[in-house]
Design a protein around this nucleic acid. Structure first.
Lengths: 194, 194
DNA sequence: TGCGGAGTGGGACGATCGTCCCACTCCGCT
DNA sequence: AGCGGAGTGGGACGATCGTCCCACTCCGCA
């Protein structure tokens, strides 16, 4: 590994860690596995990060932040609310089917944070960011709702997570799509007709 | 540790493993930690189980089986469907608040199975048992539904999981109760009025 | 009352873990 | 051109992991 600034190295290590975690799980993301994935020596790790947990904390922030960024309720004009919400769930399912390991590692990271002393607050904060990101999407729809948008957002997140977990465990796409349809109806039941 | 049959020992070890996993997580459930919890020597472990993974597989079956056994939609007469479904979600939330570690370990075990070669099918099978158990409860309500009961059950499980995950991450009980209310309305929207 | 085998304890193996240390290299500045 | 410090590599530390082995105990049956 050639020379590079500590900042670049940090970024490379974070990417490598995310890759290892997605491929082999959090438990397999040892300092050695991460540096090997990044193609650098073991010493470089502690030159940039004080500890493995410090890196994992940053991985959690970075990974979970990227999660919802890729998603947005398709705001094509001419589509009904139901159509847009349903497409949103389907898009989420598409991402899931495309890269199951990534979504699985998302859950793992959350649980790792919940288990690790000093990182519990990180889990809480990240989940609240989930909610905020979802709320932003809910607001973007322009639909009027019969209750606060953040409540809608929380329900969307919960249903999305529940469906994702079910699919990860069973790989039953039909069931997931059915659940998405029910979730859509449930969400849209809270929309106030224009 | 005195003498006991291999079968008793197996049971004691399984209980000890479940306790360690609930308290400290799957990653901390080493053979040493488990045998120490059970108060027996390390050698006894491999006298009963061929490997750590073999024990964990049995822990998964045992633990997840117990999960839904404790739950049932309160079938008190004179209560509306909405009331019963909502109470069911609340009962689930009560269990969650009472022993968060147990529910957290449930998720962890599921993810461990999904990550471990040879145990993926176990995860799938266990989740399908989840569905079956939930369906049994749904059928017990005696309510008529506008679609197959197993579809209702799958939605119930997904919503329950989604709400549980949100609560574990944020410990926001108010939000969880709100989501339970929305989930209830969603479920009951699929009930056919008598 | 022996005796065989099921059950038990403690130690040891090699592998891997997170972390640390120190000698070395090489870029950027004077 | 030389020099200081940021950046790098490889090896080593103690701890812990899963698994194994062997000497030992003691119950149940002949």
């Amino acid at each position: 590994m050639g020379r590079m600034s500590a900042l670049d190295r940090k970024s490379v290590l974070l990417d490598a860690a995310a890759a290892v975690i997605a491929r082999d799980g959090v438990a397999a993301a040892s300092t050695r596995a991460i540096t090997a994935e990044a193609g650098m020596s073991l010493a470089s790790f502690h030159y940039v990060f004080p500890s493995r947990d410090a890196l994992l904390a940053e991985v959690i922030e970075r990974t979970l932040d990227r999660e919802f960024r890729e998603q947005s309720l398709v705001a094509e004009s001419g589509l009904s609310v139901e159509e847009r919400v349903y497409r949103g769930f389907c898009a989420s399912l598409g991402l899931l089917a495309e890269r199951p390991e990534v979504e699985l590692s998302m859950f793992e990271l959350m649980h790792y944070a919940l288990r690790t002393p000093g990182l519990e607050s990180l889990a809480r904060r990240q989940y609240e960011r989930y909610w905020e990101a979802a709320e932003r999407i809910v607001v973007e729809t322009g639909v009027r709702w019969d209750r606060p948008t953040y409540e809608i957002a929380q329900v969307v997140v919960a249903m999305n997570d529940g469906i994702a977990l079910a699919w990860l465990a069973t790989r039953d796409t039909e069931a997931a799509l059915r659940m998405a349809a029910v979730a859509t109806a449930s969400i849209c039941g809270m929309a106030v007709p224009a």
